[in-house]
């Protein structure tokens, strides 16, 4: 009797296993199950917040108040007509343009120097590269603090001490508005040069060697080879580097947050910090969201440029 019962149960169980296996096969042959976790994560943590940002930007929502009203484009009008916004745009522009120039220039010089050192077998190129990259992997908040300690505004600060030795200072690196902006740019360059450097170094490695050989055969000297092979070949990479550095610079937050927190006054308040203050210090979520949407627009514009470069840049 027991045996009969087992036998009787065996059939449906086996069929069930078979059916499950068939279902699994059909499931894994469809792209949806493979993409489902990604789609869910993107929908909840990217798409929804973006929609929410746009929705909020059209309301007068305040973090502490309860009732909110639809105000249309009022937040944007207020924003674009306010002096604070315009001043922030200027600060951001100075920060971004300086960053672009300094990161790309230093990155280019270092990439060329390291490439040269590798080819000539010079000592120290590895150590140089490691020091530059080290600066890049330090968390942004800690970079802000490192420079805060470096730039202490008395003889105790390393930089001020050294300047003091040559009779300068003590320099108010963080309390003078103009100097504070310079300080954030220096700290930003300390971090960001690594990125430009490896981008450009990568670009140098991808220049076909036969171009240099052809130039040699044609009798081109060192400088001519640099001018007529390296520079034109590097142009697409340089362009992409500039676009990406611009995107990074415009979205900089943590480094400045820790180093100056936008101060003194609003002297170092870039886009992201301005948005953060609107939303979380003044509790004006609607206005903060409007700033976020403007920043989103700038990001999208730069992305379009980047994608365009990708097309003409021959799959960088």
């Amino acid at each position: 009797m027991i045996r009969v019962a087992t036998a009787g149960e065996d059939g449906p169980a086996a069929a069930g296993v078979e059916r499950a296996r068939g279902l699994l096969r059909r499931l894994v042959d469809h792209p949806l199950p493979w993409l489902l976790p990604t789609l869910a994560a993107l929908a909840v943590f990217q798409l929804y917040p973006l929609f929410e940002a746009v929705r909020l930007s059209l309301t007068d929502e305040v973090l502490t108040a309860t009732g909110t009203e639809f105000v249309g484009l009022q937040n944007y009008v207020d924003l674009f007509t306010s002096i604070g916004f315009r001043r922030m745009v200027v600060v951001t522009a100075v920060f971004a343009v300086s960053s672009i120039v300094l990161h790309t220039l230093f990155g280019l010089i270092l990439a060329l120097a390291i490439d040269y050192g590798v080819r000539r077998g010079l000592r120290g190129h590895l150590t140089t590269r490691v020091s530059v990259l080290l600066a890049w992997i330090v968390p942004g908040i800690i970079i802000g603090l490192i420079w805060k300690v470096m730039l202490v505004e008395s003889q105790l600060g390393a930089i001020n001490y050294l300047l003091g030795q040559v009779g300068v200072g003590p320099v108010p690196f963080r309390s003078n508005p103009a100097l504070a902006l310079v300080s954030t740019i220096v700290a930003g360059t300390w971090r960001g040069t690594a990125f430009a450097m490896i981008m450009i170094y990568g670009g140098l490695q991808r220049i076909p060697q036969r171009l240099y050989e052809a130039a040699r055969v044609d009798g081109a000297g060192r400088w001519a080879r640099f001018r007529h092979v390296t520079v034109p070949q590097l142009k697409p990479v340089l362009f992409v580097t500039v676009v990406l550095v611009t995107i990074y610079a415009l979205n900089t937050f943590d480094l400045i947050f820790a180093l100056t927190n936008g101060g003194p006054g609003r002297a170092t308040e870039v886009f992201a910090l301005f948005m953060y203050r609107k939303a979380f210090s003044e509790y004006a979520l609607g206005e903060g969201a409007a700033v976020a949407v403007v920043l989103l627009g700038v990001n999208l514009l730069l992305t379009a440029v980047y994608l365009y470069a990708f097309d003409i840049g021959d799959e960088i």
Binding site: Q46, P49, E52, M275, A289, L300
Partner: peptide, 19 residues
């Protein structure tokens, strides 16, 4: 997906708290 990759995460901090 590429678009989301390029958009900085800083942008979503304002709605993030309520989300």
């Amino acid at each position: 997906v590429l678009l989301f990759q390029m958009i900085s995460s800083v942008i979503i901090i304002v709605p993030l708290y309520s989300v």
